[in-house]
Amino acid sequence: MAHGHGTGAPAGRERVAADAAARGLEVEIFPRQNASSLAEAAGILGIRPADIVKSLVVKRPGDEFLFALIPGDRQISWPKLRAVVGVNKLAMPPAEVALAATGYARGTITPLGSTTAWPVYADESMVGQRVAMGAGEHGYSLFVDGDALITALGATVADISSPA
């Protein structure tokens, strides 16, 4: 397996591919041009904004985190997510904290290949959908079957979003 130059650590998309393979999850990783908005990204990929899933790193009390998988046309519903997780405080950490928690820069974050396998919460609207998401590296996305992703990650499926 090829490694990132100079660092000794695999490049982000290689970590994603290796983790997906280890989980028996089929993913299609592909280069994509940069987009200035989610709507533009969806247009480039030829899909609906709802089919782009954002992997959001959420801080729990203590030094614990979780991933919230939210469709592109929706946003986290903090009351719903707190209820599902069973805590009274959740927050979006600064970008450098998210990077330290996952090994991925904002805009490339995915639960696949994260340096720590934090719990994953997937919005129920992903069920039955083929979705695009970050692939661990700028300039790349991946397509994956939402149900297969949920199963491979052992994700908790719940209504955790509201319209954006």
Rank of each mutant, 00 (worst) to 15 (best):
H3P: 05
H5C: 11
H5I: 15
A9T: 14
P10K: 15
A11S: 09
A11Y: 10
V16W: 00
A18R: 11
A18G: 00
A18C: 09
A18S: 12
A18Y: 00
A22C: 08
A22W: 10
G24C: 14
E26V: 14
V27W: 02
E28P: 09
R32I: 13
N34C: 14
S37R: 04
S37W: 03
S37P: 09
L38Q: 13
A39P: 02
A39F: 01
E40M: 11
A41F: 01
G43Q: 13
G43Y: 11
I44W: 09
G46T: 10
P49T: 04
A50L: 09
D51Y: 09
V57E: 07
V58I: 15
P61Q: 12
G62T: 08
D63A: 06
E64K: 12
L66A: 00
I70V: 12
P71S: 01
P71K: 06
G72I: 05
D73T: 13
R74I: 02
R74P: 00
I76E: 11
W78Y: 13
P79G: 02
L81G: 05
R82Y: 06
A83I: 06
A83L: 10
V85C: 06
V85H: 04
G86H: 10
G86T: 03
N88D: 15
N88M: 13
L90N: 07
L90P: 05
A91H: 08
P93N: 13
P94L: 03
A95C: 07
A95R: 13
A98K: 00
L99C: 11
A101K: 02
A101T: 14
A101E: 11
A101G: 14
Y104C: 08
Y104V: 05
G107H: 07
I109A: 00
T110A: 08
T110C: 03
S114Y: 07
T116N: 11
T116K: 11
P119Y: 13
P119H: 05
Y121D: 02
A122G: 02
E124G: 02
R130D: 12
A132Q: 10
M133C: 13
G136M: 05
G136V: 08
E137C: 01
E137Q: 14
E137F: 04
H138P: 07
G139A: 09
Y140T: 01
F143N: 06
V144K: 11
G146H: 04
A148P: 13
L149N: 00
A152W: 04
L153R: 07
L153N: 04
D159G: 03
S161P: 03
P163L: 00
P163E: 04
